[in-house]
Design a protein around this nucleic acid. Structure first.
Lengths: 260, 260
DNA sequence: CCCGTTCGTTCAGTATATTGAACGATAGAT
DNA sequence: ATCTATCGTTCAATATACTGAACGAACGGG
């Protein structure tokens, strides 16, 4: 019985693994810890299948069960994520090439990855001069408000958007924060046309950021670079110049990733 | 040469998932990025099985392939790890139980995870009195100099060490910082015998820290606690007493993780 | 108290994923 | 140039994991 409208339509084989990933993604994305039955219902899985999977994932440390039976993410993935951050060429290449050149130019450069509808900071190179917001590794911000988030969202097919924000749009951080899906779509369209993204005071008033994506060998956007400056510095000429430089830097990083 | 060369056949079901986890663990633990065949050989998997799994894991973002075909961990697990850090009982349990009791005792307590050969601070409870170093979440320090880093390194098999420092030993932060692999191995041996680790001025002169690991249900060390005081307070009796208390606190946290 | 609902769990049959063997390609050595 | 040893990949047959249905338990309202 080929029910094609299950979890991943574009799928292939190894359904057990794909379902385990879907389970972890669902738990990570949902705000409330689900129960076994609720999980099966939400993902369209037979109860018995979910039961077997959850049991195995629990043994493996991928899932943890609270006393009341609700499911949470387990600690096992910390090992892989730590390895990714440490060993992948992303952060080291960032440090070696990009950070140095921009730091000498007195700009703060950050790098993030997309995690659901939030960005996670995985590398930062702060300028010598003080900026009134401190980026820290591991920090999270809503993707629609950040330059890196917009760059990463713009690189994804438009139809993914609704799923990412099915549970509501994030609350605005400033009066300039994009507040609705239509506004976001318009900004993403502008980003695609321009080649880089702009955040003008949407996470902090007076803070102006430019963003561009870094792709892997397959062209998939895996991270994004951002350049932070104060709004008073952001003249049109300056923005255009810095935007081009940022796109060059991102393309350079992409090449390093592709070359291995 | 991972922790478990064989995938326990007598274990349970869902072999695809168990093997995927074994693959990610192997890649995370090994120093060099393996190839598909090498991976299959090391884990005792049929080549075709490994091929199908790796292909699916690549599509899912769990694995990434470099241009030369070698395999690395992918960015997908970042989502789960981030969720774990944000939502799981680790940080909240830390805040609820440990931090309060020690804070009333005027001590600074911190928690870190290992990330390559660095530790990343994931929780901090600073004492009311000023200490001359500020720990911030997301901050990184070289593992060999910190109490938590030594505790986490001591929990790993000794043969993993060379791989972690293949690219060189970190530059010393003070004149007391451990400066070579033999010195580090000696300190780790002392740590294993003592049950907790000690940093005596290796990240900052005059700062004295004790460390102990927190393990998950499988006994794997996933994080470490540290207690910070000034060197003048660190009398032998005081160190012994605080060390025992810290080990108790770490064991209590481990139980909370295991129990869910 | 009894009933309806939801929970987690078990089990045998079948649809399905795993696998051993063989393929073409590449690289280094003879 | 030939040979050998890897590499990654494909495919049909079988051993296996998934699933639909049924179970006991727990909860809450009528």
């Amino acid at each position: 019985m080929g029910a094609h409208d299950r979890i991943s339509a574009g799928g292939g084989h190894v359904p057990a693994l794909r379902r385990a990933v879907a389970i972890l993604d669902y738990i990570s994305a949902s705000s409330e810890a689900p129960t076994l039955s609720g999980l099966a219902r939400a993902l369209g899985l037979p109860k018995s299948t979910a039961h077997g999977l959850v049991q195995a994932m629990e043994e493996l440390g991928l899932l943890a069960r609270a006393a009341d039976g609700t499911l949470r993410t387990g600690p096992h993935s910390l090992r892989w994520a730590g390895d990714f951050l440490a060993r992948t060429d992303l952060v080291s290449a960032f440090r070696q090439s990009i950070a140095e050149s921009w730091r000498s130019a007195q700009f703060t450069v950050t790098m993030t990855v997309l995690d659901g509808n939030e960005v996670v900071y995985i590398a930062c190179s702060e300028a010598n001069r003080p900026l009134d917001v401190a980026f820290r590794i591991g920090m999270r911000l809503p993707a629609p408000f950040t330059a890196t988030g917009k760059a990463l969202l713009a690189a994804r097919p438009d139809r993914d958007l609704d799923a990412l924000f099915a549970r509501g749009f994030p609350a605005p951080l400033t009066r300039y924060s994009v507040a609705s899906m239509p506004d976001l779509r318009r900004e993403l369209a502008e980003t695609r046309q321009r080649g880089f993204s702009i955040d003008d005071g949407q996470i902090r008033e007076g803070l102006f950021c430019l963003g561009a994506t870094v792709g892997d060998h397959a062209g998939q956007a895996v991270a994004a670079l951002a350049l932070s400056l104060t709004r008073s510095e952001a003249s049109p000429d300056m923005v255009a110049m810095l935007g081009r430089s940022l796109m060059d830097a991102a393309a350079d990083l992409s090449r390093r990733l592709g070359a291995g």
